[in-house]
């Protein structure tokens, strides 16, 4: 009996220590002063490139909108994932419902650290684990560009998540595993410029790995199968392998990749489909050098076999 009491006591103390440690370890952490100092004044014209590379409209434009209306970033799309339904928020310039009242530091903390102006964690459906690789100056440019876009009133509905994913604080622990500004793929010194420039666009603003890399049960991307393709997180089907491995882009030349990003045609004359349609249209807005850099990087990364199960051939 005394032993049991002792055990219970020890468990309570340990649990308490664990809870306190967990509370500290899960705390949202913003950027340090040194990083914030690198933001600079920002330039809207340069920011447009970042906006296109990031494909912000894919998630934040009003669902179903076309043409210039896609610059009305009212949010509201429903992303149905195994963790629940995420709804991208209004990031238009509306001061009340959007992010019109945000400072450039607020945007930097959101994109590089996943921390809101109120000091809460954002869910990583907002792909800050990719944006964490971005240069602060590019965030400032993006901020300047966002300022040129219209204010749209109306808050998007909140996320619909079940336990335990509805506990925001828990994301702090997840970030300790998955939030890093170090490049995913390390290249040796002397690697040519287009490859490293492409790495920046793919791993950072382009956030290609968010869909093209398989995820662990925690929802984090498996860096050991970087860009190997994955079962679609949303809906049915797959997202293709874009490494030079078997099933991937081994048969595509660099020019093929760049041409696909520009025109939407694959080398064997299939066309872009699914969620990639919007991505490709944004990539078409970039300079040819940027598309060539992305292609150079994709040819330089480690090859992997497909990160999704083989297609089931139904008996006919």
């Amino acid at each position: 009996m005394r032993l049991l009491k002792k055990l219970v006591g020890a468990a309570l103390v340990l649990g308490g220590v664990g809870a306190v440690a967990g509370w500290f370890l899960s705390a949202p952490v913003g950027l340090d002063a040194e990083t914030l100092a690198q933001l600079g004044p920002g330039d809207a014209a340069r920011g447009k490139r970042i906006f296109s590379a990031g494909g912000c409209t894919s998630c934040h434009a009003k669902p179903g909108s076309k043409g210039d209306a896609r610059l009305e970033l009212a949010g509201g799309l429903e992303l149905k994932t195994p963790f629940g339904t995420f709804v991208p928020p209004n990031i238009s310039q509306d001061a009340k419902d959007g992010i019109g009242a945000w400072t450039v530091e607020d945007l930097a903390n959101a994109m590089l650290k996943g921390v809101s102006p109120a000091g809460e964690h954002f869910y990583p459906a907002f792909p800050y684990t990719s944006y964490a690789h971005m240069k602060p100056a590019d965030i400032a440019d993006l901020y300047a560009f966002l300022k040129t876009l219209p204010a749209v009133a109306g808050k998007a509905p909140g996320h619909k998540l079940g336990f335990p994913f509805n506990i925001r604080r828990g994301i702090g622990l997840w970030k300790r595993l998955y939030l890093s500004s170090e490049p995913v793929i390390a290249f040796p010194d002397g690697t040519p410029d287009p490859v490293t420039a492409g790495r920046y666009l793919v791993e950072g603003p382009g956030h290609c790995g968010e869909c093209h890399t398989p995820r662990a049960f925690t929802g984090g991307t498996k860096k050991s199968e970087w860009l190997a393709g994955a079962a679609a997180t949303e809906g049915k089907g797959i997202v293709p392998n874009i490494t030079p491995g078997e099933g991937g882009l081994s048969d595509w030349s660099q020019a093929d990749i760049a041409n696909y990003l520009e025109t939407g045609f694959t080398p064997d004359f299939d066309t872009v489909g699914g969620a990639m349609v919007d991505v490709q249209r944004n990539m078409a807005e970039l300079a040819a050098d940027d598309r060539a850099a992305i292609a150079a990087y994709l040819k330089a990364i480690p090859p992997h076999p497909n990160g999704y199960p083989a297609r089931e051939k139904p008996a006919s």
Binding site: G235, I238, P240, T271, G273, G274, V277, Y308, R311
Partner: peptide, 15 residues
């Protein structure tokens, strides 16, 4: 562009 518009909504990528 028309090709892409249709494939965006009416086709699923499979392995």
């Amino acid at each position: 562009k028309d090709c892409g518009t249709c494939h965006q909504t009416y086709r699923i990528k499979k392995g």
